[in-house]
């Protein structure tokens, strides 16, 4: 075996060991809290994660949107104030709103 092949093999071996160390580190540090999460869901009983909740039909998609999985079709990525009709009032009880009007 030539010197270069030896270098290459040891490099690949190095990569493998980095990978194993990384995986071991992750297996040891990350925990899913499966039990707590399941307890919580058992009480609340709502699906989906709280990662997108700007519009209510996005938050519990499977429950709130009646007809389709992707509300208005996959081509349209809805953005909260502009594509979503919400009956808000900007001067109700003098509470300021994030949604700004352009008159």
């Amino acid at each position: 075996m030539s010197k270069l092949s030896y270098y290459l093999l040891s490099f690949i071996f190095l990569l493998f060991s980095i990978l194993t160390i990384e995986l071991l580190y992750m297996y040891s540090t990350f925990s899913l809290h499966v039990k707590e999460k399941n307890n919580f869901i058992a009480i609340v009983g709502l699906p989906d994660l709280a990662i997108s909740n700007g519009a209510n039909f996005i938050r519990h998609r499977s429950y709130s949107d009646t007809f389709s999985i992707f509300s208005n079709g996959p081509e349209l990525l809805e953005y909260f104030p502009s594509t979503f009709t919400y009956s808000y009032s900007n001067n109700y009880k003098n509470t300021p709103s994030r949604i700004e009007f352009e008159n």
Binding site: I43, G45, N56, Y88, T95, P96, I99
Partner: peptide, 21 residues
Amino acid sequence: PRVWGYYYFENAGVNFSIVGI
């Protein structure tokens, strides 16, 4: 029977999910 829904908090422009138990 369950009661739950969304409460829109205008000051911050966010939806809270309110769940009744």
